[in-house]
Amino acid sequence: MIINNLKLIREKKKISQSELAALLEVSRQTINGIEKNKYNPSLQLALKIAYYLNTPLEDIFQ
């Protein structure tokens, strides 16, 4: 099972779900679904998340 630290990292960087969704060009519901482990992001989306949060991919999804 993948450990998902997206919410923790996003909140630590003081970025809202809506702000991150806008940067990634996805819906806020997509971010919410990823954070609640209801949706697994594509590799492309996971890499974009890591880029915009300036955090290694391995720290977000373990």
Rank of each mutant, 00 (worst) to 15 (best):
I9Y: 11
L24N: 00
Y52F: 13
Y51G: 07
D59R: 07
L24H: 00
N4V: 06
E19V: 07
N37A: 09
I31C: 02
I31M: 04
L8P: 08
D59W: 07
T55Q: 06
N40F: 11
L57N: 02
R28V: 15
E11C: 08
I3T: 13
Q29M: 09
I3G: 13
E19T: 11
L57H: 05
Y52L: 11
Y39C: 12
Y39N: 06
S27K: 08
K48W: 05
N4W: 05
T30L: 15
L6E: 00
N32T: 07
K12C: 10
L24G: 01
I15Q: 04
I34Q: 01
L6S: 01
K48A: 09
N37V: 04
E11S: 07
V26Q: 03
A21E: 02
Q62E: 11
N37Q: 13
A21Q: 03
L23W: 13
L43S: 08
L45N: 02
Q29K: 13
Y52V: 15
L20W: 03
A50G: 05
R10Q: 02
S42W: 04
E58N: 11
L45Y: 02
P41Y: 04
I15W: 06
Q44Y: 10
L53A: 02
Q44C: 14
G33D: 15
L8T: 14
N4F: 06
E19N: 08
I9V: 10
T55E: 10
A21M: 03
I3K: 14
K36M: 14
R10N: 01
T55A: 08
L45Q: 05
Y52M: 10
N54M: 08
N37T: 08
L8K: 15
D59E: 13
D59G: 06
L20G: 00
E35I: 03
E19G: 08
A50E: 05
P41G: 04
L24T: 12
L20F: 07
R28N: 08
L23V: 12
L45W: 02
K38W: 14
S18E: 14
I2N: 09
N54C: 10
Q62N: 11
K36D: 14
S27T: 11
E25K: 14
L47I: 11
E35S: 02
K48L: 06
N54G: 10
L6M: 11
Y52Q: 07
N54I: 04
E11N: 08
N5T: 06
I31Y: 07
Q62S: 10
D59M: 12
I60G: 02
I2Y: 13
I60N: 00
N54K: 11
I2V: 13
S42D: 11
I31L: 15
S27G: 06
N4C: 08
I2R: 11
Q62M: 13
E35F: 02
S27V: 03
L23M: 14
E19S: 09
K7D: 02
N32Q: 13
K36W: 06
E19A: 12
T30I: 14
F61T: 03
I60R: 01
L45G: 00
K12I: 10
Q17L: 12
S27P: 14
E19C: 09
I15H: 03
R28I: 15
S27Q: 06
I49F: 03
R28G: 08
L8S: 13
V26C: 08
Q44H: 11
D59T: 09
K38D: 10
Q29V: 10
Y52H: 09
N32C: 09
I60M: 04
L47Q: 13
P56K: 08
P56V: 03
D59A: 10
L8C: 15
Q62V: 14
A22K: 13
N32A: 15
R10I: 04
Y51V: 07
I31D: 00
T30W: 09
A22C: 12
K13P: 01
K36I: 09
I15R: 03
M1P: 13
N32E: 15
Q62G: 14
I15Y: 07
S18W: 13
A50C: 07
N32M: 14
K7W: 05
A21S: 06
I60V: 07
S16Y: 03
P56S: 08
S18P: 05
I60T: 02
L8R: 13
P56H: 07
T30K: 06
I31E: 01
K13N: 13
N37Y: 13
Y51I: 10
R10M: 07
K13F: 12
Y51S: 08
P56C: 06
I49Y: 02
K38N: 11
E35Y: 04
L20Q: 02
N37P: 01
G33N: 15
R10E: 02
S18Y: 12
P56F: 05
I9T: 08
L23N: 08
A22W: 07
N4A: 04
Y39H: 10
K48Y: 04
Y51R: 09
L20A: 00
I15T: 05
K7M: 07
I34V: 05
K36C: 14
L57D: 02
F61H: 01
V26M: 03
P41N: 00
I60C: 03
N54P: 02
F61W: 09
Y52C: 09
D59L: 11
S42T: 11
K14I: 04
P56D: 07
I34Y: 04
K38P: 04
K38R: 13
M1S: 11
N40H: 13
K14H: 13
Y52S: 05
E35M: 03
S27C: 06
T55M: 07
G33M: 15
L6D: 01
L43T: 12
R28A: 14
E58P: 07
R28C: 13
I3Y: 10
L43E: 09
Q29T: 11
S16G: 06
L53P: 01
N4R: 03
K12N: 11
I34C: 02
I34F: 05
A46W: 14
L53S: 01
A46K: 15
E35T: 03
N32I: 15
L53R: 00
R10P: 01
Q29L: 10
Y52D: 00
N32W: 12
S16W: 03
A22N: 11
E58T: 14
I49A: 02
K48N: 05
E35W: 03
N54Q: 13
N54A: 13
E58H: 12
N32K: 15
L20Y: 01
L43W: 13
I9P: 00
Y39I: 15
T55I: 07
M1C: 15
M1A: 09
S16F: 03
N40P: 11
S42H: 07
E11W: 06
T30C: 15
Y52W: 10
K36F: 06
E35H: 03
I15C: 07
A50R: 01
F61A: 03
V26A: 02
Y52T: 10
Y39F: 14
N54H: 09
V26N: 01
K38S: 11
T30F: 13
